[in-house]
Design a protein around this nucleic acid. Sequence first.
DNA 1: TTGAAAGCGCTAACAC
DNA 2: GTGTTAGCGCTTTCAA
Lengths: 331, 331
Amino acid sequence: MGDIAVLANVSKPTVSRALRDSPLVTAETKALVLEIARKHGYAVNRNAQKLRDKRTNTIAVVADFKSFPGSRLADPFSFELLADVAQALSLRSQDLLLCAPAEESHETYQTLLASRHADGIIFLGQGQRDPMLRQLAKTDAAFVVWGAVAQDQPYCAVGGANVRGGELVGARFAESKRRRAVFIGGSDEHLEMKQRRLGFEKALLAKQPSASVGHIVVSNFSYESALAAMVAYLDGKNKNEYPDAIFAASDTIAMAVYKALRDRGLSVPKDVSVIGYNDNPHAAWCSPSLTTIRQDTRQAGSLLVEQLMMMLEGRKPQSIMIPAELIVRES
Amino acid sequence: MGDIAVLANVSKPTVSRALRDSPLVTAETKALVLEIARKHGYAVNRNAQKLRDKRTNTIAVVADFKSFPGSRLADPFSFELLADVAQALSLRSQDLLLCAPAEESHETYQTLLASRHADGIIFLGQGQRDPMLRQLAKTDAAFVVWGAVAQDQPYCAVGGANVRGGELVGARFAESKRRRAVFIGGSDEHLEMKQRRLGFEKALLAKQPSASVGHIVVSNFSYESALAAMVAYLDGKNKNEYPDAIFAASDTIAMAVYKALRDRGLSVPKDVSVIGYNDNPHAAWCSPSLTTIRQDTRQAGSLLVEQLMMMLEGRKPQSIMIPAELIVRES
DNA sequence: TTGAAAGCGCTAACAC
DNA sequence: GTGTTAGCGCTTTCAA
């Protein structure tokens, strides 16, 4: 910047002001400075800016890429969410620092902020880290979480209407008079799972009190793990005890359910009705196309960013739920 | 840091040295400083570090999230690649600045580097931006590209063996005596597409000279676009002219092909054999499961990072191709 | 409207 | 081993 100042025959502050389009600078001076800067490929040093200002205009986004080490891609849902968060941040001229989750201690994240690496954090997925997040909430760390919205939560979350989503599924199975329903998904420790399962049971039993509702717990959200769990479950049953309705906690799990049913010669939806969650792109492509619950990631992304920005302005944003919508297809 | 220095009764440089575990500091002093820093939640300011050093230890990653505005997720392949790049960067303690592609001018990216925002750039996808990249290569910008590796390329690329991939597909169709083959994918302007198509034609015609090879051009890589193109193609043919072998440039496109064939009552692989590209997770899950070409994104991610690091050390890394592997399934 | 001075937090170079 | 000094590049006082 010094060089540019010399070349333009002005002082450093004037160059700075010109580049930031300050009204304090003559149009001519401004034009001159801009021209020279452009010609010399000069760009303001962001690190110096960040050092001087308190704000870094950078948001750290923590995304779980793999459902477990060595596995393939996690559910595409997280990626659509990441993409939409990226877009929302870009609209607000915030940089996105992408973090693969490290050792999950709240201190790691406090350090991230303390070192002025980022102004705030967006966690894409609450998963098992609720306890850590509660710790982090005791500090003045600015962060927002995609996950279940709960009553006693000391931090700001943006999440789907999981109970409602489960209810929609339960109601639909009740309508088609299904009597042996099963929920396949994570354990109740995973709050989102618990909410979906409870909404599901409640709505189904309300209209169909004689129905049974099983619960198959998967150890992680991978296709393989879900397939193993589903196969094991069916292996333990007689044909006449087989479920006639399966609610899968994700579309990926639903694909594993399809596979297990196909291998046993069961037809969807005649023998078994299946409903998934998230409305992944491939839910619409497979055959029979999958009925599922859609959550608008675009809206989710905007809200996550919005709430975090609010927090950075010193306000105290509320947790928000986004709607769950049943997308009826062939399954 | 000043505060910590005062509390520890030492000078700032000593604190700095202690925190960086310099051998110049007594073990006791080090322990004392560390203890005090920990107690006060102190973390070294990264922006000050970046300002002072020349290196920022940050790599910008440019990823095309959406195949086109408003669409759903782009092909999951890019995301697996992103995840693996993230991991490779993390192993080298490099921060990942995630960039949604802006106005595609080489100046944008020069500015990114000039402002010391990042040390280098990884472009995940060469797409239509080869001309821009050639411009950028004329500067001293450090960058690496995932995409086609070509002869006259003035920049470092890491990419799949696309010609080889095409050959594998062509050879397989020849083995099963298919005679009316079609390639459905991007136009030849997209270099990766061209390479796959040429390898395909060559290998198929070498063993099966009487075969015909059609080319369906999709305007983008979305499912919808591919489905429309496929349907239009079939609409223009008589039943006896229908292809008996289709090579789809991505698994997403292959899913659209499946759909178009199903809707016409054609069976895979009896009537038509289909092969995709990328080995997306759902390629294995659909029915019939999809034969496809796998490219190891893990290796790709490592290589991209490795080559870029080499460049940042002042060396001149070579472009590299990673192998293409045929994964035979039911289709 | 512009400039001079000061300081953001850090570390390399040079004393001691 | 430790401290002093200086400067990375920027922008916000404050003074002119």
